[in-house]
Design a protein around this nucleic acid. Sequence first.
DNA 1: TATTTTTTTGACCAAATGGACAACTATTTA
DNA 2: TAAATAGTTGTCCATTTGGTCAAAAAAATA
Lengths: 208, 208
Amino acid sequence: MTKIVQIKQTRIQREKRLLIQKAALQVFSEFGLRGATLDKIAKACGLTKPNILYYYSSKDEIYAEVLQSLLEEWIRPLKDISENGDPLTEILKYVKKKLTMSKTKKQESKLFATEILHGAPLTQNILAGSLKETVDDKVKLLNKWISEEKIAPVDPYHLIFSIWSMTQHYADFDVQVYSLLNTKKRSRIFQDAEDFLLTFFTRCLKQD
Amino acid sequence: MTKIVQIKQTRIQREKRLLIQKAALQVFSEFGLRGATLDKIAKACGLTKPNILYYYSSKDEIYAEVLQSLLEEWIRPLKDISENGDPLTEILKYVKKKLTMSKTKKQESKLFATEILHGAPLTQNILAGSLKETVDDKVKLLNKWISEEKIAPVDPYHLIFSIWSMTQHYADFDVQVYSLLNTKKRSRIFQDAEDFLLTFFTRCLKQD
DNA sequence: TATTTTTTTGACCAAATGGACAACTATTTA
DNA sequence: TAAATAGTTGTCCATTTGGTCAAAAAAATA
């Protein structure tokens, strides 16, 4: 008995899968896994529900794939912190990069946050796996910089947490941030945020 | 035609409503509004579904009440920042208080985060209302302290955001935080976090 | 204790939703 | 262009779930 397995994706498969992923990201990030329905995703990408299920075998599979591709992108910038550059500059570059991502990848940030918030059922192994590896690696580097007195002493794990939380806050809690600022400040949130963050981390990390 | 309106709650009503609220907080914070079901809440408090609906007319009403009572508690500590105390001490006291809440009120923090993350459909008016009032008030105080050179100059709005994000991170993203720390560090997350935060804000805000 | 009021629950309903599938159409390939 | 393969959809189904309701049980009151 021969089972025929399709290896190569057709043009239409590539296009439609991408279309579905985009719509799914939008819907999942707004409503969460449970709040999102196939009908909503279908509407968002202009396909019918059975058509979507022709490309993905279930809603959960769509969610898993969207989350998966997001995670890789999410971890990447951390890896770019280089031990060759000037320590403070490297850290500030990372802060800037993360803040930019909060501005341009708001949906991704919210989806990631929702996943973690609800116990990371599909993400746990990645957190404890490749992300942990990268973090541990950078923690070592930060400790090296501290021992060389190139940055002020500080717990490197919590330093990383602080960068994540402060930058992602502008994506995840955008509704709150917008609500609390007046119109003038609202239009320059991200400039103000960058100024604040760079000042903040510089004051905290600069060696006298 | 006379309509009889019950004014005073009976003992049983008080007890059962509280019981339901507790269970609902637990379930809502774990699954979100849509992911939570009446059956789950019912199971969590040992009542039957129709019994719950005897005390609350709908799932949404339970959610609204749980959220409402949480919000007041959530805003309160900010109000306690006093213009009479030493500026840096007052700010650090607030940081400590918020971090403690992340430890002891994890469910509340997660529920609040989920609500904001998904657009704050029921909270918008409170954000723009009483919370904004309090924030604006404290921003004025912070600006006063800055102009008197009692703390280093910094955007007060973003300072408040940074306190919120960094402290709440330890509740909302606990799964991630735990995943990334080894056993030794895991057992003293909150001590390490407090040390880190106090050092950080001190370095950032202290006037030379 | 008799009566009234409050509380509880089993059984039920309608809407929403994830998904199956056969029939039909469009595209690719030989 | 004919055959084969890929893509699309209307219709249907089963499950989940928020919510109703009448009747029974428990509690409060007179």
